[in-house]
Computed example of a mutant assay.
Amino acid sequence: MSSLLEPLNIKNIKLKNRLVMPPMATGKSEDDGKISKEIIDYYDEKSKGGYISLIIIEHSYISQQGKASDNQLSISDDMVIDGLRNLSNIIHKNGSKAIMQINHAGSASKKSVTGMNAVGPSAIAHPRSELVPNELTKNEIKEIIKGFKDAALRVKKAGFDGVEIHSAHGYLLSQFLSPITNKRQDEYGGDLKSRIKIHLEIIDEVKKAVGEDFLLLLRLGASDYREGGVTLDESLIASKEFEKAGIDILDISGGFNGYGVENKEVQGYFSPLTEEIKKVVNVPVILTGGITDIKAADKLLKEDKADLIGVGRAILKDSNWAKNGIQSLK
């Protein structure tokens, strides 16, 4: 049982409290994905005072083919490192720790954005679109694994405290995880262990590149909330495998096709997922989902639903939410 004001030590990182700002796409980067003044100003404003202990920067694309949308942040080449270092410096100066989320959109990408054909684990249309992607070859999978590794190393060079691998919300890694979109007949498809093979290989390569002291997070879509999709029971097994592979924090979300979750009026609506995952792993678990009241956040921790609480939309709407909330609990 924890409280929101309680610090948490993870490896060589000390979080001053249990409040996290989860990744939320801003669409504020330059056209080529580089850091803009707008992004710097945005995160400067959100991190002022260091009331949010951990800020996870919005998803950034590891390659042009994996770009999800226009004006998305890039982590796809070394040219972005200097701009990102300015971002991590400002967040640190304000008193918060900073993580970058890295991603490949897979079949959720659009040719109008990437200029390239979409790819996926199988030639199956993404539920959000009618477009059928090209099925990835094993060599192409190896290239994507290398893309995640190279992106993670850039995150470290840019001065961040860690990196988060994105496997939620219907993007490429959740496409591999989900039986809805993964119908492969080779070692990357079939049972759960095969469907998370790409995840485990990415974790292994990233850890070799960034070293043991650099925090490694994974955002897991722990339930697709769709018939034939990923279930909580499968995610309990996957979570244990990810911990064994070296993940330091599990950031839990859900919903393959958007959120699609029941009880969205309940604060912390992913808590049925995090509560069960927390029982089977020893690493910290982040809970998000419609949390707008600081006392509700504190209560969820005290009820052992999670170890860290992510508050997104409330902080997006009000940059003083964390300051006012933390002060009200003291």
Rank of each mutant, 00 (worst) to 15 (best):
S3V: 06
L5W: 12
L15M: 13
P22T: 02
P22V: 07
D31E: 15
G33C: 11
I35L: 15
S36G: 12
E38W: 05
Y42V: 03
K46G: 04
K46E: 01
Y51H: 08
I52W: 06
I62T: 13
S63A: 12
G66N: 01
S69Q: 13
M79S: 08
V80C: 05
R85Q: 15
I90D: 07
H92N: 13
S96E: 11
A98R: 04
I102F: 08
H104E: 08
K110A: 11
V119F: 09
V119C: 09
S122W: 06
I124Q: 04
N134H: 12
L136M: 11
I145F: 10
K146V: 11
F148S: 10
A151W: 06
L153I: 08
L153S: 14
R154D: 03
V155W: 07
K156H: 08
A158I: 11
G162V: 08
I165L: 11
H166L: 00
G170M: 01
T181S: 14
Q185I: 12
L192A: 07
K193D: 09
R195V: 00
L200H: 10
E201Y: 02
K208S: 12
A209S: 15
A209K: 14
L215H: 10
L218E: 10
R219C: 01
R219S: 02
R219L: 00
R219P: 00
R226I: 14
G229L: 08
L232C: 06
E234M: 15
L236W: 08
A238E: 10
K244C: 04
K244H: 06
A245V: 08
G246C: 07
N257H: 02
G258S: 02
E265L: 06
Q267N: 10
K278G: 08
K279Q: 12
N282P: 02
T288S: 11
E303L: 12
E303F: 03
A314K: 15
S319T: 04
S319E: 06
A322K: 03
A322T: 03
Q327T: 08
